[in-house]
Design a protein around this nucleic acid. Structure first.
Lengths: 215, 215
DNA sequence: CGAACCTTTGAAGGGCTTCAATACTTGTGG
DNA sequence: CCACAAGTATTGAAGCCCTTCAAAGGTTCG
C-alpha cells in the first residue's frame, strides 16, 4: 500500500479560446480549454453535465482510496472522449497528464444526448471490462504487454509508441508498483521485444511476441 | 494460473412461456427463458441484439484467456439487467449460475433503444470502474469485504446475504483463488464479522467493520 | 550547475498461489 | 435410509511473484 501524493502545480486555465468557425463539423465547435500538466479537469463529487474530447495531450481518470492508493481506470489520448457518468455527480477525478487541450461539450438542461453518448458509454464499458481481465488474472509482464499493445493500437499501430504518462501512472493503471513496471520494461528490453528510446517513448521490435504475452 | 473447465450440463431451454397480459407494465411483457445451472445464455463471438433482465436466479458474465484463466466481470441478480454491448457481437460469455429465468428484450432492426440503454450502460460503466479499483489496489480481505457489502446492498441491506455462486466464481470475480477466498471467509468468521450459515449464505454481524475493510 | 524529481536496480520480506490432503455437501442407487 | 461417489470447500505447508525498503543513476528545469 503506497501513499499517493500529488503536487497540484497549477490550476486549469479556463480561459476559453475564441470559438472559431467550424471548418469540418456541422455543429459549431465548442471552445477548447487548456490544462497544464497535473491540472484537474474535474473532481470526484463535482457536478457532472458535460463530456470532453481530448484535442492534444493526455488525460488520466482515477479513483482514490482513503489511504491514498490510486487506481487509474483509463487514459485518454488525442481524439478520445471521456467524462460522461451516471447520475449528476462525478465518481472519479480527471487530470491532464501533460499540457492538454480539451473540448468541453456541456449538455443543455433537458437536452437528449442519448444518441451521442450511448456508443461512447458502451465503448467505455467494454474497455473497462477488458481491463478487469488484465487486473484480475494477468501477471506483471502480461499486464505491461497488454498496455503497450493497447497504446500502440491507439496510436495507429506504429512501431514507435509515445507514453505520455509516468511509470507511477502506468503502475496505478496496471495495479503494480513503479518498481515492477520498471523491471518489466527492462526484461522486455533485454529480451529484445522493445527498445527504450527515452523515458517516454518505446519502439516495439517484436510485435507478435508482445501480442502473445498479453493474451 | 489455474485451468478452468466447465461441464456443460444442459442446454438452455428456449421454450418460451406463453406471454401473459401485462399486469403492471405499459409494454407487453417479453417471454421468459429458463436456464438450468451452468447453461449458457450467450457466448463470446455470438451476434448480439438484445438485452436481458433476470427474473429469478443469478447470472455470471465473464471472459476467458487462451489458457483457461477466467475473469468474471459481473454477477447479475434478480431484477438486474445485462447483455447490452458495443458492436454487433458479444465480447463476453453469460451463464446461469443456478436455475435462472431471464426476460429477453430483442431490439427490432433499426429500433432506437438509446433512451432505455444509456442509463443501464452508464450504471454498468461505473460498476466496472469501481471494480477496477478493487482488483487493482485492494488486498484479499478488502476484496472479499467489498464483495459482501455489495451483495448485501443489492439484496436490500439485510443481515443475511445469499451467495448463489461458488467459491470459484467468487475467486474469479475478485481475482483470487478459491483457497484464498475460503481462508478470508474463515478469518472474517473468526473475527466475528460474519457468520457462515451454510455454504451459500452468510450473516453480516459487524456491518461497520466490513464496510471499513472494504474502503 | 544544482536541486528536485523520476527511474532503475538491488536485497529482503510478505501475501497470495500452488500443491496436497482432509472434510463437507449433494445426488444417486441399492 | 444409508452407502457411495463426485463435486465443493476447508485447511496446511512450501514456494514464488510482487512489494517494500534502500540506494544510486538519470532527467528536467529553475
Amino acid at each position: 500500500m503506497h501513499a499517493y501524493t500529488t503536487s497540484r502545480i497549477a490550476l486549469p486555465s479556463h480561459a476559453a479560446q475564441p470559438s472559431q468557425p467550424a471548418a469540418f463539423d456541422t455543429a459549431p465547435l465548442q471552445p477548447v480549454s487548456f490544462f497544464p500538466a497535473a491540472a484537474e479537469i474535474y473532481a470526484q463529487g463535482e457536478k457532472a453535465g458535460a463530456f470532453y474530447q481530448v484535442e492534444f495531450g493526455a488525460v488520466r481518470v482515477y479513483r482514490l482510496l482513503a489511504d491514498g492508493r490510486r487506481q487509474i481506470s483509463a487514459f485518454h489520448l488525442a481524439g478520445e472522449t471521456f467524462g460522461f457518468e451516471a447520475g449528476t455527480t462525478h465518481h472519479f477525478f480527471a487530470e491532464a497528464i501533460s499540457a492538454t487541450g480539451v473540448r468541453v461539450f456541456r449538455f443543455a438542461a433537458g437536452a437528449d444526448m442519448s444518441h451521442q453518448l450511448l456508443p461512447l458509454a458502451l465503448k467505455g464499458l467494454t474497455r473497462a471490462q477488458e481491463h478487469l481481465l488484465v487486473l484480475g488474472r494477468q501477471n506483471a509482464i502480461e499486464r505491461v504487454a497488454a498496455f503497450l499493445v493497447d497504446m500502440a493500437e491507439r496510436q495507429g499501430g506504429l512501431r514507435q509508441v509515445e507514453l505520455p504518462m509516468s511509470r507511477m501512472d502506468i503502475g496505478d493503471y496496471l495495479g503494480l508498483t513503479i518498481e515492477t513496471v520498471s523491471r518489466v520494461f527492462t526484461r522486455l528490453k533485454d529480451k529484445g521485444v522493445i527498445r527504450l528510446l527515452n523515458l517516454r517513448s518505446i519502439e516495439i521490435v517484436k510485435h507478435d511476441a508482445l501480442q502473445n504475452m498479453s493474451e
